[in-house]
Write a protein that binds this DNA or RNA. Structure first.
Length: 507
RNA sequence: GCUCCUAUAGUGUAGUCCGGUUAAGCAUUUUGGCUUCUCAAGCCAAAGACUCGGGUUCAAAUCCCGAUGGGAGCACCA
């Protein structure tokens, strides 16, 4: 049969084969969720309050909260505070503030530690059903046995003995002497399943509960129980937890509890911008970065200080999608989103870097009114001029006697003298190609311009990652609110940090 | 070492589950043009990709096998 004949045959007998299947329409936002019922989706973001929130936290929080929003459901912020040695109120507060800054609607906020009694009850249940046992082996031996896939003698104790030991662990045992382990499978390929710890003894002082408890649930135990009793339907976490999915399901199955659907996404990091405290802390201690809000860092506080808007972070993160492929995002993608958000509301101001003196004769005016924005209606400002200006060094160097240039907003000039001290004559409209911003010497205000760059080149800290310039700007700068986003014409967007300092946001 | 995850333009992604209307869409980046008293924004255009090798099929980015690269886990941290 020829291809033509085949087609005819199919057309007449099995038309559905050739009918093209409808392609799903281009998706907007996150992919649809399996098993999601509108109004019934509950998601959560469970950070440990042990550090300042950064872009990685933002990703987890935004993905989870966006899903709740998408399905008209509920989003819970749950402080995962089951390691009293690490948690601090300061971090707890910073995380909450960070999420609020991002504009995330939190329907409920809670702490894992509120449910300690539930954990104990569930722990006892597991002991009673012989799904957990108290292990008193040494830490090293436990590790060795895990690697060699061998169970220890503790695992062979009967339920009665375990109950007694569990009781003893709760009251008498010292840290390190006993742990409660889940009866998993010591021969499992997934090492997480090799009888993992459910509870351990920590005597540190907890930031909200003090010394009320000394036996704390491990991450797996806490997350499993919490997600189940909080009614979480869909739990999204970063990829490094993926091996834990099996364990969490197993714990919940052993307890006959409802299981959430678990999803995973890749970690988000910026090239050359460390996220981990392990790397940032030493930099602070050595004075290489000022603090967690140093504009070179990817913490929310730093991003904010640098002039990045929360809406930009949100758009950026949504644009990355829900993927498990490793993402090392370039910062310029974020910048592009931010620029578009910030542009319509940023006042245009003149600022001169590497100032060179310019004297203009024949000026017909003593002041000039310049609009604050080329398109948006943002008013204007009046600048006094007396013929003595500063212009950018880069521009000054390209000027020779006879050059025509335009001083933006003021008028055109013809250069009569070049060098360190430039001179020029005012000359109406010369159709000058070179256009430049300027400031009046008599009212110039000196500020420090901070330009954050990539902190690490490969593995090495870049000593020049924070460039500082002494620049001149208009007195108008002093009237802006701290935190205002502005655009220094022909230089880039900047955020006013103080009366004497601005931070470069991006081009 | 063992186990798991992952692989589409310079970068980030859509498409992959259910193979064919897509010789692969979008964003960013770069380049050119328009507009403009900013090297911004806006508008237009161009450039640029299915890791490799086998297999299944009339047909493979899409399914199967293998290799390679990247990441993670193997804590009494989360």
């Amino acid at each position: 049969m020829s291809a033509e004949e085949q087609k005819k045959e199919i057309d007449s007998r099995f038309p559905e084969i050739l009918a093209p299947r409808k392609k799903p329409a281009e998706r907007e936002g996150l992919p649809e969720l399996k098993g999601a019922v509108h109004g019934q989706v509950v998601t959560r973001f469970p950070p440990e309050p042990n550090g300042y929130p950064h872009i990685g936290h933002a990703k987890a929080a935004i993905i989870n909260s966006e899903y709740a929003k998408m399905y008209g459901g509920k989003f819970i912020l749950r402080m995962d505070d089951t390691n009293p040695e690490a948690e601090r109120m300061e971090y707890h507060a910073a995380i909450k503030v960070g999420l609020e800054w991002l504009g995330i609607r939190i329907d409920q906020i809670k702490s894992t530690s509120e449910d300690m009694e539930v954990f104990y009850k569930k722990g006892s249940e597991l002991v009673a059903s012989n799904m957990a046992y108290v292990c008193t082996c040494k830490r090293d031996d436990i590790g060795k046995n895990r690697r060699e896939r061998r169970s220890c003698k503790c695992s062979r104790a009967d339920t009665e003995k375990n109950s007694k030991n569990w009781e003893k662990m709760m009251t008498k045992s010292k840290p390190g002497e006993a742990i409660l382990r889940f009866r998993g499978d010591m021969s499992a390929d997934n090492a997480v399943m090799r009888d993992p710890v459910l509870f351990r003894i920590i005597e540190g002082k907890h930031y909200t509960l003090g010394e009320k408890y000394r036996v704390w649930p491990s991450y797996d135990m806490a997350v499993a129980i919490e997600d189940s009793i909080d009614g979480i339907t869909h739990a999204f976490r970063s990829k490094e937890f993926e091996l834990r999915r099996e364990l969490i399901d197993a714990i919940l199955d052993a307890l006959n509890m409802r299981k959430p659907r678990q999803g995973f996404f890749s970690r988000l990091e910026f090239k050359g911008m460390p996220i981990s405290k392990r790397i940032i802390r030493p930099l602070i201690e050595e004075g290489k970065v000022s603090w967690y809000d140093d504009p070179r860092l990817p913490t929310l506080e730093a991003l904010k200080r640098r002039g990045i808007r929360p809406e930009a972070i949100k758009k950026f993160i949504m644009s990355l999608g829900l993927t498990k492929a490793d993402t090392l995002a370039p910062f310029d993608a974020l910048e592009s989103f931010n620029r578009k958000i910030v542009d319509p509301g940023s006042r245009r101001l003149f600022m001169v870097n590497d100032p060179k003196s310019l004297t203009v004769t024949g000026l017909p005016v003593s002041s000039v009114e310049i609009p604050n924005h080329p398109a948006a209606d943002m008013g204007s400002r009046t600048i006094q001029v007396d013929g003595r200006f500063y212009i950018p060094g880069d521009d000054a160097r390209s000027l020779v006697p006879g050059s025509k240039a335009r001083l933006l907003g003021l008028g055109d000039i013809t250069i009569t003298g070049a060098g360190e001290e430039l001179a020029a004559e005012y000359s109406k409209d010369t159709k000058a190609e070179a256009k430049m911003q300027w400031v009046s010497q008599s009212t110039a205000h000196r500020i420090k311009m901070i330009i954050p760059k990539v902190l690490f080149q490969g593995d090495v800290f870049d000593e020049n990652s924070l460039e500082e310039l002494d620049v001149y700007t208009e007195p108008e700068y002093l009237r802006l609110d701290d935190g205002a986003e502005i655009q220094f014409v022909r230089f880039g967007y900047c955020r006013k940090d103080s009366q004497s300092q601005a931070i470069f946001t991006h081009k």
